[in-house]
């Protein structure tokens, strides 16, 4: 889909925190000077077209007593799809990207306990026979998140 100026204004605003009120979209609509129904229609369209991959609360597994960990694997090309199916089958794999490197599969594990990271990463190694390198964050330097639409 092609985004017009109104779509972009909505998308830019919606990358920032939505107020925790009964009618949050009405609050955003008022800020932007657009009717609430139009905000909702456009958001629905952008979500259906997968311009928005997800809309809602972002949870911090660590604050719940759990953990996140970035992991990487060097997957041989001919095995890539088979390994991908095995990796993605784990609910703990929150997102996964193919990247240009010998380490070509990069995914984030989000688990409810710190031990869950080790358990899941070890399970993936066992199932695929490929080493899972683990890169937990040591320090986080400001997360901007937003991209200008």
């Amino acid at each position: 889909m092609t985004l017009d100026g109104t779509d972009r204004a909505i998308l830019n605003r919606m990358q920032d925190d939505l107020p925790l009120v009964s009618h949050p979209y009405a609050a955003v609509a008022e800020e932007l000077g657009i009717p609430e129904s139009e905000v909702l229609n456009r958001l629905t369209r952008m979500k259906d077209a997968r311009v928005i991959t997800r809309f809602g609360p972002f949870f911090d597994a660590a604050a719940m007593g759990g953990a996140f960990c970035l992991c990487a694997m060097a997957v041989p090309t001919e095995e890539f799809e088979t390994v991908l199916t095995k990796v993605n089958a784990h609910a703990e794999v929150a997102h996964n990207y193919e990247r240009t490197h010998r380490l070509n599969m990069w995914f984030v594990l989000a688990t409810e306990t710190p031990e869950g990271i080790v358990g899941t990463a070890d399970a993936i190694e066992w199932e695929t026979g490929i080493c899972v390198l683990r890169f937990p964050k040591l320090q986080e330097f400001f997360i901007g998140f937003r991209v200008a639409a």
Binding site: M1, D17, V51, D60, A63
Partner: peptide
């Protein structure tokens, strides 16, 4: 939800854009 947010369990309530579809 406000309480979960104050404890950092909820970081924010927002849209995750698809960078590819935004021309990025």
């Amino acid at each position: 939800l406000a309480e979960l947010k104050s404890r950092g369990v909820i970081r924010r309530i927002a849209a995750a854009p698809n960078h590819y579809k935004l021309g990025m």
